[in-house]
Amino acid sequence: MLEGKLEQASLFKKVVEAVRELVQDCNFDCTENGLALQAMDTSHVSLVSLLLTADGFSEYRCDRNLALGINLVSLTKILRCGNNEDILTLEAGDSADSLVVRFENTQQDRMSEYALKLMDIDQEHLGIPETEYAASITMPSTEFQRICRDMQSISESITIDCTKGGVKFTCEGDIGSGSVTLKPNSSADKPELCTKIDLSEPVSLTLSTKYLLNFCKATGLSQQVTLKLADENPILVEYPLSAGHLRFYLAPKLDE
């Protein structure tokens, strides 16, 4: 049986909001370590990997591993019945055919309970190989979102070039081209505004603007985002959570 209590429903609401356009049906794998989700988008170009560790819940109990098959459109409908500040409890029995979602307001004088029907989902699981990334860029998530937004109207692709001196985002389309360069910077007062580059060798990757912009739906979950790049390999876009992470992988565009 699973029982997980989150002090603020907003975390779970934001996580589901962030992935529901990429993924429709998926299994939430519940173990004693927490809740995990791994799913590819329908065109098999990107992968979402979510981990909410048990210590991020104010109460967590999972006696037996469970795979909860969930339609995220339906889950969204139910999560919208609760307020961001509500305490959220997720509950499912070992052979349950539904997930119980409970909301309790902070004054503890309003409780609501919804049941979401579960589905049987035969989902392929992918092995994510250990990758030696050539570059790791940590930057404000709002800055990454702004770049992707600005460039979406110019080109279907964004090229990310990373050197020790900085990271350059370039786009080229029918109407013209554009680039944004960010140099590493640090501010002790506002570490969330820093840009940090760890580089073992210069690297360049071209990626779909549409997918990168989709990942930016997670912006509200974390002030910083980390991009990890290796030549001719999928990019890893990671939003750290207070207990866990939301990761997106996207296969690159390569010359024919």
């Binding site: 170009v45 392929e124 699981h125 992918l126 092995g127 190989p129 565009k253 390569l254």
Partner: peptide, 14 residues
């Protein structure tokens, strides 16, 4: 011309 790769060519199915 650049072509979008699929993820399965990098990440094996378990």
């Amino acid at each position: 011309i650049q072509k979008q790769r699929r993820l399965l060519s990098y990440f094996p199915e378990i």
